[in-house]
Each structure stands twice: as structure tokens, then as C-alpha cells.
């Protein structure tokens, strides 16, 4: 494959340009993930052949089509159990689950809940563009209350999910919220997540100018990007209570949880070794 860009060595360049609409934040996120991986691989803390991607269905999950790694584009909402299946039998793998807010927080809600409860050794990156993009702009669990979507034409009557609080409450080792408007910080969060045992969860505020932007009157990529940037509040070491997720008050980004409890895989191995007469 031909190489131009410094990240091309991690990309299936023959699949570029990506399928995403102009100005979609997902490509920015993919760049951050690949740069974070590049740092890990260069410093020797990750082996390239041990990196695997898994995504469900949706624009965000399509991110699995481009990285030049082992990669799985599976079914809607089910990337987490797929990735965990890989991880259990090949613990040396670093499994990165990428999905949208619908994929991870709606249809995949049960799986993220239990993956976090287990502190399963996965890096879960939830791209949150506050809308169902691929299917044409329907309401998501992350859609701000009151906003128009194609399935809530009189305004979204539902409360938004603050998944940071969920992930923190259920005991993930690492919980952060980043934004594609703040790329060095986002890259750093993903870099850190890649080094964690247990479950590392990164919610990423992203932009969908084509649908979400159209719904709220910021149709051009730059307008939506600029609008989101205005509403992002960067905090250093914010508490979980400070993790505001609000169109009006703003979206607080930062690292909310960083702990180092044993991950599911090592506990499972320890318990399993009892069966084989190990110390356990």
C-alpha cells in the first residue's frame, strides 16, 4: 500500500478516503487512536501484532475498517463480547472496542454494563456524536433533551445518559471524556487507556455536521466543530460529580477515574489456575 501520511503505516490506505462525510469527527478520533498506538508501539510497551480492533455497527464502528491491525466489524452492539472472547483466550492481545453512542450505550448497553462490572481488560472508546448517523439522524441516548431528531420531531423528551457516571459507578479502572476538538488531550487519554489493566473507558465527543449539525442549525463542519468547542469545559482531574453532560451547561472533559485494580483477565486466570492445582 502506498504511503504518504506518517500514520499510513497503520492504515489500510487502499481504503482511503474514509466513508465518513466531510468534517466528521470520527476521522480525527481515529488519528488520535493511531498516534497513541504509535507511541506505545515505538516505546515498546505494545506489540503491533497484539493490537486488535472490534466495532459493532454504525459510523463509529466503521472505524475498524481502516486500521492495519487485526480488526473485527461485527454486529450492532456486540463488539464488547466479541472482543472479550478474543481477550480471554489470548490475554496478550490489547483489544480496542470502538463504537458510537448507539452501539455502546443503547443496543450494547447490557454488555458495557457488565464489561465494566467485570473490569474486563478492554479499551472501550465510545464516539459520541449525540445522534444516530448511519441510519439518518434519529435520537440517541446521548441526544440532548429537547433537541429535534427525525424520530423526536417535537423535541427529544428523554434524559441523556451520562456514561461517565455509569462507568465510574460500576468500577472501571479508567474513565475519561475527551473531545475531537481537543486532540492532544484526547490522544493522551487514549495513550493512557492503552496502558491500563482492567477496563479503560473513553467517551469522545465528536461531530456529525451532516445530521446532528443539520438538526441544530450548524450544518457546516467548521460551525459545528466551533460550537462544540465552545461548549467543552476542560478540567484537570475533575471529580465524577463534576462530569457535566449538558448542552446548556457544557460538557466537562478530563480524566474522572484512574485506579489500578486487578482486571478480569488476571483474576480469571488466577481462579482458573486453582483448577490446575496452582496456588491460586
Amino acid at each position: 500500500m502506498a504511503v504518504a501520511h506518517p500514520l499510513d503505516r497503520y492504515l489500510r490506505t487502499d481504503r482511503l478516503p474514509t466513508m465518513w462525510c466531510p468534517g466528521c469527527g470520527l476521522g480525527i478520533l481515529l488519528g488520535c487512536i493511531l498516534r497513541a498506538l504509535d507511541r506505545r508501539i515505538r516505546e515498546g510497551s505494545l506489540r503491533r501484532e497484539n493490537v486488535g480492533f472490534a466495532g459493532g455497527i454504525g459510523c463509529s464502528a466503521r472505524m475498524t475498517l481502516y486500521p492495519y491491525f487485526d480488526s473485527a466489524h461485527v454486529i450492532h452492539g456486540r463488539a464488547i463480547p466479541f472482543a472479550l472472547g478474543v481477550k480471554i483466550v489470548k490475554p496478550e492481545m490489547k483489544m480496542i472496542v470502538v463504537g458510537g453512542d448507539g452501539d455502546i450505550a443503547a443496543i450494547g448497553g447490557n454488555h458495557i454494563l457488565h464489561a465494566i462490572r467485570r473490569n474486563a481488560d478492554l479499551v472501550v472508546i465510545m464516539a459520541n456524536n449525540m445522534i444516530y448517523g448511519m441510519t439518518g439522524g434519529q435520537q440517541a441516548p446521548t441526544t440532548p433533551r429537547g433537541l429535534y431528531t427525525t424520530t423526536t420531531p417535537y423535541g427529544n423528551p428523554e434524559r441523556e445518559i451520562n456514561i461517565v457516571k455509569l462507568a465510574a459507578a460500576l468500577g472501571a479502572n479508567y474513565v475519561a471524556r475527551g473531545s475531537v476538538t481537543h486532540t492532544p488531550l484526547l490522544e493522551q487519554m487514549i495513550y493512557k487507556a492503552l496502558g491500563k489493566r482492567g477496563l479503560a473507558f473513553v467517551e469522545v465527543l465528536s461531530t456529525c455536521p451532516e445530521l446532528f449539525g443539520r438538526h441544530i442549525g450548524f450544518r457546516s463542519p467548521v460551525d459545528l466543530y466551533s460550537e462544540l468547542r465552545k461548549r467543552v469545559v476542560v478540567k484537570t482531574r475533575p471529580s465524577v460529580e463534576e462530569s457535566d453532560y449538558s448542552w446548556e451547561r457544557g460538557f466537562v472533559i478530563g480524566e474522572f477515574v484512574d485506579r489500578d485494580e486487578p482486571g478480569f483477565i488476571e483474576v480469571l486466570q488466577e481462579y482458573t489456575s486453582r483448577a490446575r492445582g496452582g496456588a491460586g
Binding site: H5, L16, P17, T18, C24, G27, G31, T183
Partner: peptide
């Protein structure tokens, strides 16, 4: 490198 980091399409570096 803000352009490089913010480009969704690996089109500028």
C-alpha cells in the same frame, strides 16, 4: 500540527 491532528482524513501533515 493542529491541522494534522484535526484533519479527519489523514490529508495533511
Amino acid at each position: 500540527r493542529m491541522c494534522e491532528y484535526s484533519c479527519p482524513d489523514f490529508a495533511i501533515f
